[in-house]
Amino acid sequence: MVWASQHGEPQQWAWTGGIDEWRLVDISDKQVRIGAAVTLAQAVRFRELRSLISAVIDGAAVVGSVQLRNQATLVGNVCTASPGGDTLPGLYVHDAMVEVVNAAGSRRSVKISEFLCAPGKTNLAPGELVTGLTLCGLAPHEGSTFHRFTQRNALDLAIASVAARVRFESDGQTVAQASLALGAVGPTVLDVADAAALLVGHALEPSRLRQCAALAAESCRPITDHRASQDYRRQLVQTLTMDVVAAAAARARGSIAMTL
């Protein structure tokens, strides 16, 4: 819209926001499908999504402002392909698949990490559209969280952001599975599997958490710009990772309490 108003009136346009299939949220077992016309505000208000894809909803709740979230969609946030997109790290830890259709009607499904190529660039070919996202929701003993750091509390872009997903063994102590994704510190979101792997098979002791956060900070590729320096962003990743893993673990323990 902004681009269009700066480049003169559009000669041709189509409104996809009214397509019924695109406006749906489907939940079957732990699988969540979100149509391309579902707004961020609708996703945030959908209570079941908060417990199934917590990290994505944490991000959706802080994009822009009240007005923008009423208009903007989750799929729009994906297609913008900003390195700092607030929903993107959460989508990574929830193994999002992007559903694509072309003009001939043939469909394909792409992993989010392959869909996002570079700042502002996706792997959509001419004539293709995104129809929705499929996400892997949280299992029992599992939690996910997204945190970001901004200079202002609203209408600001992240200087750095981190999403974590943690699943405990049934003992509630040993980490069975973990994933971590970093935003705004590389050309696209970075999946730091090596750092997350350090948590698996162990209890979440402070020393292990520090080790994981240090490796995440080492693995990121931030730039220096008007928002922050490279070095500051790297230190932020370390702090945010510690916080976000602890918060995801607390949610996972909450889900343990709920399933008992």
Partner: peptide, 27 residues
């Protein structure tokens, strides 16, 4: 701003606040 940041153009669409600078009239 004309970019959805400032909220000066806020209107209600079916009772929901939105930025009128980011809405195409035809939709």
């Amino acid at each position: 701003c004309g970019e959805g940041d400032c909220g000066a153009c806020t209107v209600l669409v079916d009772g929901t606040p939105m930025c009128s600078c980011l809405l195409l009239t035809g939709v």
